[in-house]
Computed example of a mutant assay.
Amino acid sequence: MATLYLIRHGQASFGAEDYDKLSELGCRQASAVGRYLAAHGIYLDAAYSGNLLRQRETTELALASQPQAVPHQIDSRFNEVRNDEQIEHLVPRIVESNPAIRALMEKGLSQSKDYQKVIEAVFNYWVSPQCDAAGIQSWEDYAGGVRDALGDLVREQGSGKTVAVFTSGGTIATAVSQVLGLGGEHAYKFYEPVFNCSITQLFYSGDKISLSYFNDRSFLQLMGRETDENLVTYR
């Protein structure tokens, strides 16, 4: 039996010119998850991440607390869902039949909660059979990439290993829905609630992967109390 941790990146810089980097709070979250792993004797044999900056920064900060150097492999199949691409190409179709989303787009997506409502509508349309938009990554290609990346990791690492994948909410949601045998229409249910730097634990043996727990952030709550800081965020 081997253990695989799916860890979401720390808080990114929503509203900043460059979203794809950790905020100051995101850096502290990433360091906290690293201290948590080390303090509880979770020593990693390997780490993986996508190539997004926020994922790589989280990996580096978390691995700094490991007692020995941990090999870090970058695999773009662990990147986030391409939200900006989907908004650009799919929102014009969605607003034709969804006045609520039209109103939000006209208002502007300056608030995180409004952005999330649009992401929900876009994601659920993207995974549906009705979506046939050309020129963007399809759900089938994205989900297949996540499935293949996990399969390759399991085969590369083999039994008895402890491995972490530092990735994003959409990737975690996709992987969990696949492990549970659910289709894309269920993936968003796991996407929206994923906390920054939360941990999802999987076990694998051979080609079989099982879910142990999902989206744990209790350690961030406890560590935040020690420093009188709220380390728990969604966005």
Rank of each mutant, 00 (worst) to 15 (best):
L182Y: 03
G224L: 09
H186V: 02
L220T: 07
G160F: 09
S65Q: 14
Q29I: 13
G181C: 10
Q66N: 13
S198Q: 11
A173T: 04
P99Q: 03
K117V: 04
K21M: 11
L37T: 15
D45A: 11
S177N: 05
Q157G: 06
M1F: 12
E88D: 12
A12D: 07
D84I: 08
A32K: 00
L231G: 06
I101M: 07
P67T: 14
G158H: 07
G41Q: 02
E60N: 10
A30Q: 00
G169W: 03
I42E: 09
R82E: 12
V81G: 02
Y125D: 09
Y5S: 10
Q73I: 14
T167E: 03
I74H: 04
N83W: 12
Q116H: 05
G34R: 06
P99I: 05
N124F: 00
Q201I: 06
K117F: 00
H89P: 02
E140W: 00
E57N: 09
A149D: 10
V118T: 05
F190T: 06
E185F: 04
Q157V: 08
D141N: 13
E140D: 10
G184R: 00
Q11H: 05
S205R: 14
R102N: 13
S138H: 10
E88M: 06
T58R: 02
P67K: 13
Y48W: 14
K189A: 13
L37S: 09
K189N: 11
Q55Y: 04
G169S: 05
D152H: 12
G10A: 05
I119L: 11
D45I: 14
K208F: 12
L52I: 00
K189G: 12
D20S: 01
I74G: 04
Y191V: 07
F123A: 03
E60C: 06
N83I: 14
Q55H: 13
I119P: 03
I136S: 01
I119M: 09
I7T: 09
S138K: 11
L63P: 14
L182E: 02
E17S: 10
P71G: 14
Y234M: 08
L22P: 03
D84K: 08
R77K: 07
V70K: 02
N83R: 10
L4T: 09
L22M: 05
H72E: 10
L202E: 07
D148C: 11
S210I: 10
H89D: 03
A62F: 09
T233M: 07
N215C: 11
I199N: 05
Q221H: 09
F190A: 01
D75S: 04
Q130I: 05
T58M: 01
G145I: 14
Y234G: 07
G151Y: 10
Y234Q: 10
C27T: 06
V70D: 07
Q73P: 01
N51S: 14
F203T: 15
S168G: 02
S198A: 15
V179M: 04
L109N: 09
G135Y: 00
V194W: 01
F190P: 06
H89K: 15
T162R: 13
R56A: 09
Y142G: 07
R35P: 00
L222A: 15
